[in-house]
Simulated assay, not measured.
Amino acid sequence: MEDKKALKILSDLIGIESANDHETVVADYLADLFKDYPVKITRVQYAEDRDNLVIDMGQQGPLLGFSGHEDVVSAGSLDNWHTPPFAATIKDGNLYGRGASDMKSGLAAMVVAMLDLLESDQELPGRIRLLASVGEETGEYGAAQLTKEGYADDLDGLIIGESSNCDVVVTHKGVIDYYVTSKGVTVHSSTPEKGKNAIMPLIKFAEQAQAKMDSHDQVDPVLGPLTHVISQIQGGSQINSVPDSAWLSGNIRTTPLYPNDQIYQELEEIVAELNQQGAELTIRYSFPEVPLPNQKHTKLAKLAQAVIKEKMNYGGNFVADTGATDASEYIRAKGNFPIIIMGPAPGNVAHEPNEYTPVSNYLDGCKLYQDLAWKFWQEYAK
C-alpha cells in the first residue's frame, strides 16, 4: 500500500471522536475498508453505538490474532493542544492527534498489514483474526465480552498493538479500581451528636488501606512494587450540615507477588472491621484485571524479537509495563496461547495533550506486522 493511503487510514481513525464511547463509528469505518475482500466481518454489540468488530481472513493454517481497541481517552482542555486533537496533523515528521499513540496507530497498522496481505499475489498459508474492542480505556469490557463469547478460544497467538516503540511487552501489572461508599445521618452541624458523619469512616478506611498496601514491600523483579492511590473522595451537601453520604475511590496496580484475590480480601476485611465499629461502608470493584504472566519464554515473543531485530534498527527488547491492557481479559480464553504487546508508537506520550507518533514508526509498523504474520505462519505450521 502506498504510504499516502496508509497514512489516510490512520488520519481518518483519529478524526473519529471515539473518546470513551461511540466506537461504532470506528467499527463502521474499518468494516467498510474490508467490504470488497474475501473476509468474514462480525459485529459484536456491547451497547448502543458501541460495537466490537471481528474480521477473519484466510482459510486454513495457524490463526494469529491482532488486537486493538477502538476507543481513546478524552482530549481534555483544548487549550493544552497545539493542534486539533481529532484532526490528524503531520508536523516535523510526527503525526499528532488523540489516539496517535494510544492506540489508533497500532490498530491502523494492523489493518494496513491485513489489507496488503489480502492484496498480495501469494497464497496465504495461515489466518488472521482482528479483534477491535470497545471500552479498553475504562475497563477492558469489550475484550471481556469477546473473550466470554469465544472469539479468542481458537487463537494460536495474539499480538496487541498498544504503543511500545516496537519493543516487545511480555508482562504487565494488573489493576484494581475500587469504590467505597459510606452512609450517615444528616443533621445541623451545630448538633453533630444527633447525626452520623459519613466522611469520618472513609478517612479511617483510607488510612488503613494505604498502610496495608504499603506493607506489601516485596518488589517483583520485572514489574516493580505494588502501588496504591486514593484517587477520589467526595461527600456532604453543604458546610453547615453533617454529611449523610460520602464515597472514595482507589486504584491499585498489582503484581503476581500479591494476587488480586488477596487484595480483595484485605480491603474487605478493613470494611468489615470498621462496620463492626459502627460504620456503614460498602465496597465494589470496577472491571479489575489480573497481571499478564511473563511471556518472554514463549515462541511468539522470541519470534517477534527476532523479526524486529532483523528488519528494524530500533525496538525488539523484552520490556514490562506498569499499565494494563486487553491482554488481562484474553488470558481468560479457553485456548492456551501466548500474548505479546507490540505497537509502533512511543508509549510515553499516551493520554497526554499533543499525543503523537512518528510517521516513520507508523509506516514501519505496517510492514512489521506483515513480516510477523508470515513468520508466525511458517513457524506455527511446523
Results as ranks from 00 to 15, higher is better:
H297Y: 11
H172L: 06
N294I: 05
E193V: 07
E379Y: 00
E193Y: 14
D21V: 09
G323E: 01
T298C: 09
E289R: 14
G76I: 03
K382C: 01
V319Y: 03
N94Q: 13
A143V: 02
E23P: 08
A143T: 11
S189Y: 00
E136I: 03
C366N: 10
H228V: 05
C166H: 05
K367S: 11
P84M: 11
T298M: 07
G65E: 06
E137L: 11
L248G: 10
V39L: 13
H188D: 13
G236R: 00
L300R: 02
N361H: 15
W81Q: 05
Q276V: 00
V72H: 13
S67Q: 15
D326M: 10
V175R: 15
E269I: 02
K5Y: 04
G278E: 12
Y362N: 09
E329F: 01
K204V: 09
Y96I: 03
G142A: 02
M103D: 10
L146C: 03
A100R: 12
V169H: 00
G135V: 04
G61Q: 09
T298K: 08
L53S: 00
E329N: 13
Y314D: 02
A113S: 14
Q276D: 13
I9E: 04
G161P: 11
V242N: 07
P358T: 03
S360K: 14
A6R: 15
L10N: 06
E149R: 11
V242H: 03
M312H: 06
L115N: 03
G65R: 04
V134F: 08
